[in-house]
Write a protein that binds this DNA or RNA. Structure first.
Lengths: 347, 347
DNA sequence: TAATAGCACTCTCGCAGGGAGAGTGCTAAA
DNA sequence: TTTAGCACTCTCCCTGCGAGAGTGCTATTA
């Protein structure tokens, strides 16, 4: 099963089988490989294919059908045989142009990212809003909505916004609220949840106590919740391109997109290391993804704000193109975000 | 085709056929209707069924199969035959309990609403964040992110939050920003986009001008975009419950959930009138929904903040239950929102 | 006149058989 | 080591057939 066991010709054949199958979705015959002018006849290719099958890279749906890549086959392809191309300059320019048109609004960027990932890869995409690794207070603001209803806005380090409504027992005017907000900002700036809690113990003002409770509570919840808002797109691609028989696969994809728990696990994986990661058929680790492949990358500013993005689709997805897109998009978003905040860039 | 043409017995039969078909998903035979003790034999029911077919309420997949409701059949059922039940008290209490546990966070409420709608109806759901009909400034806030990067937070009447990043040519400290924000608040409070633009013309301060441009621009975009954030859930229900042959229907559902344009059209429809609306097979108006039914309602506070929620699924959806859930949820959300802001309630 | 028992008719569904076609594995020769 | 040739296998598609479900029609009954 080791890579060294494959001759150059075997590699060529494996690559062709994978590429052909990704395109056609039908088992690849020895004959169809001969059209690529390898200088050998079908019989020879058959022998090699049968060897590749023994090694676990190919398999047959039934005895007299062509070959289909196994998960191991895809993995070998992705790791050793795929030509890593950059996204064509023209497409890069087109995408980045769209982003700069979208003004400086994070929400728009994320929406657009999901759309671009989905469109370019012709699969489903997902991207999480960037999130600070550490949850520190940047700013609090108190806004009077009406007599005794107050809107609390909490800005976290990294730019995440949280809003909460506060119902008071008695009315309070905007001026008092602004004054209180200013005090609290001085007090809490740069603190994490525990810091705020500790500093707030001596507070006596009724409203201040309520606000501090709300802030601490909100931050604790941000801390425990791994991922933030999630943007998705391209589900329709899956339904139009994928064989409809593969019910199981489609369900897995939707489950990934819909269930927060799944996303959080993936995001955890993505954030654990840099670069583009490719998970093929769950890679043995995840049964729930047995029928799908996922191309993942983190983006953002290391140790400051990071998010994850990815494309999810059937095993036979156009890996080369997808990897290019995900890599490009993660760099683009990293740059945009670091420009936004003036941070140093994540490689 | 008029309602009066249906005898009481025909109504009973039509109701039973629809209910049976919704449950079983297989064409309903005359024999199976006899189990409901109508006091007549299968042959009689056959005659009635054939009459109902002439009237356009039933149809047969093929000559010797049972009957299936037509769109007109569903519509008749929904309008005249369906028993409008309230959601059981127990379920009402369970749901409302969940909402009060979720603290006063709109985001959580919306998420939860989508989940409840999807779970109770066993179909896909969608809900848009409530949005002010009129877009007025409630509050602006300027927060220094670093030297010359400023976070602009714009609170609109109704509680919608917008954030924008502002890059300045030179650094500015938080104190100056706060002072500026206070001035701008006094100046702009309660104004709409045009008001802000008009008032801002005499401004000379460099930062103030930039802020005003950004605010006007943002508000204009909020004005033109019909719907705000959209929350979805329950797509998996569709895939597990629906016959998988009905590819077209599933694609239509996903298209509704994924494409903003579709959502906006539906929301427009929902907002145009109160109460729960039921769109069956596009009701002739919308080709794109030929295979699906949609149960819609608006919620919120009339003429102040309103949103739309709905359930979407195959034609054979459990209308009675779905309508109950949507009605209950729209009231619940209306109450929560009016409590939140202290507004008067929307009927 | 409305209801219904009875029966012929129609259509689907599942199964089996057969032929065509695609693709393989193996053997023997170059 | 490669390859031509051939037997073999398996799918796919078409056909035919019998069973079963359900209808429509007709003649009879209350």
């Amino acid at each position: 099963m080791d890579a060294k066991e494959l001759t150059e010709r075997q590699q060529k054949i494996l690559r062709l089988v994978v590429q052909e199958y990704i395109q056609s979705a039908t088992p690849v015959s020895s004959k169809s490989i001969t059209t690529y002018n390898l200088g050998v006849r079908a019989a020879t290719i058959r022998n090699e294919m049968s060897h590749l099958e023994e090694l676990g890279y190919l398999t047959q749906p039934h005895t007299s059908a062509g070959r289909v890549p196994t998960e191991a086959g895809y993995r070998y392809f992705v790791e050793k045989l795929m030509n890593q191309v950059e996204l064509p300059n023209e497409e890069q320019r087109m995408i980045s142009h769209q982003f700069h048109q979208a003004r400086l609004e994070l929400d728009q960027w994320l929406r657009l990212s999901a759309a671009v990932l989905a469109h370019m890869s012709q699969n489903a995409s997902l991207i999480t809003a960037p999130k600070s690794d550490l949850c520190h207070v940047k700013h609090v603001e108190l806004i009077s909505i009406r007599d005794n209803v107050v809107l609390l806005i909490l800005v976290l380090q990294g730019g995440t916004l949280k809003q909460q409504i506060l119902n008071l027992d008695y009315p309070i005017d905007q001026d008092s609220l602004s004054r209180l907000a200013r005090q609290l900002n001085d007090l809490w700036g740069g603190q994490d949840a525990n810091g705020v809690a500790a500093i707030s113990t001596p507070l006596i003002d009724d409203v201040a106590i309520k606000v501090s409770e709300l802030v601490v509570d909100t931050m604790r919840r941000v801390d425990t919740r791994r991922s933030s808002d999630i943007y998705r797109d391209g589900l329709l691609n899956i339904l139009t391109h994928t064989e409809f028989k593969e019910r199981e696969g489609i369900q897995q994809i939707i489950r990934v997109l819909e269930e927060h728990q799944m996303v959080e696990r993936l995001v955890g994986e993505a954030l654990s290391q840099g670069g583009v990661q490719i998970i093929i058929g769950g890679d043995g680790k995840w049964e729930e993804f047995s029928e799908v492949s996922i191309v993942l990358a983190r983006y953002g500013v290391a140790d400051e704000v990071t998010g994850a993005m990815g494309v999810i689709g059937p095993l036979r997805m156009p890996y080369s193109r997808t990897v290019s897109v995900v890599r490009y998009m993660s760099h683009l978003m990293s740059n945009l975000i670091s420009d936004l905040y003036g941070y140093q860039k994540l490689t």
